[in-house]
């Protein structure tokens, strides 16, 4: 299936000389939730801004549904809804007024029923006549989402949708994103909350210093880069590990009570059975054991750290 959004050799150098994106290539599939992770200043917002038409690219092309974003901007932008990072709204306008404005701006005929549905879905219906400046921060963010959904977009960009949002609202937001995806909307979100990507994304891309370091199916990424660790708690502490355990990737804690065994879960032989039987033969008795799998956060930290400056 051909990608819904295709980014080829995209670069952006700002007038100040700052290189925000370096030769980025990226395909986004219809109906997926793609999370773009990366530290501040990595180029996430620049990438989104170029696709949406806010920033001009220095080099490279982007197509949306086969249309070039510059030449056929009317076709591409009609399909896209954008929720920017900053809470920028017309403070004196009402929630209803601002959604109506957005719908018109994107070339759609007025449709009060649709706007009502959007506001109800965002739990904003009772605030429709309130001026935006009278709303709380969380409500303002929902108004921004409402504006982006007012013209029934097929693609939704959420730039840091949950930055500065409390836990409850964040969960609501995740729920909303999943519902939108179920209704067929393709969603691209940037975040630096790893648990967010872990919770809702189908695919995860990591951007650092303007380059895509990795982009994978979330489960695949965790499988590929995820390590598993077996932690063994001993009945009696050890001064050092006996020599016969050297072939294993083991680590003894300082107090000598914990042995950590790092292994590759996908290897044909993980070595767990032989390790355990060897421990038994050596007379090392276990008190407890547990296994842990590295999270997306560990993977992310490793990737970003490994990146050369």
């Amino acid at each position: 299936m051909c990608p819904l959004i295709s980014v080829s050799n995209l670069s952006k150098t700002y007038a100040s000389g700052f290189v925000a994106l370096k030769n980025v290539n990226l395909d986004i599939k219809q109906g997926e939730i793609l999370a773009l992770l990366g530290p501040n200043g990595a180029g996430k917002t620049t990438l989104i801004s170029i696709i949406c038409g806010i920033v001009n690219p220095t080099e490279g092309t982007v197509t949306v549904n086969g249309h070039d974003i510059i030449k056929d901007y009317r076709q591409t932008r009609k399909m896209i809804g954008l929720v920017p990072q900053e809470l920028t709204t017309d403070a004196f306008e009402t929630a209803w007024g601002t959604l109506r404005f957005s719908r018109g701006l994107f070339g759609k005929k007025a449709n009060p029923k649709h706007l009502e549905k959007v506001l109800r879905d965002l739990s904003l219906w009772d605030k429709k006549d309130s001026k935006i400046r009278e709303l709380s921060g969380g409500m303002k963010r929902r108004v921004m989402i409402g504006k982006a959904l007012a013209h029934e977009p097929e693609i939704l960009f959420l730039d840091e949708p949950t930055a500065g949002v409390d836990v409850e609202l964040r969960k609501d937001m995740w729920h909303l994103v999943k519902e939108l995806r179920n209704s067929g909307v393709t969603i691209i979100l940037t975040t630096h909350y790893i648990e967010e990507a872990e919770e809702i994304a189908d695919r995860v891309g990591v951007i650092n210093h303007g380059e895509i370091v990795v982009i994978e199916e979330k489960t695949e990424l965790m499988r590929k880069l995820g390590k598993k660790q077996l932690t063994l708690e001993l009945q009696q502490s050890l001064d050092q590990l006996p020599a016969e355990f050297r072939p294993y990737n083991l680590e003894l804690s300082q107090d000598g009570r914990l042995i950590t065994f790092t292994y590759d879960i996908h290897a044909e032989r993980t070595g767990i059975t032989s390790l355990l039987s060897q421990l038994n033969e050596t007379g090392i008795r276990l008190k407890d054991l547990k296994t842990t799998q590295s999270s997306l956060e560990d993977i992310f930290v490793t990737l970003v750290k490994d990146e050369p400056e």
Partner: peptide
């Protein structure tokens, strides 16, 4: 000044 111009720039206008 307010930043709301993002919407004009991203709209099919």
């Amino acid at each position: 000044f307010m930043g709301t111009i993002y919407e004009l720039l991203s709209a099919p206008v």
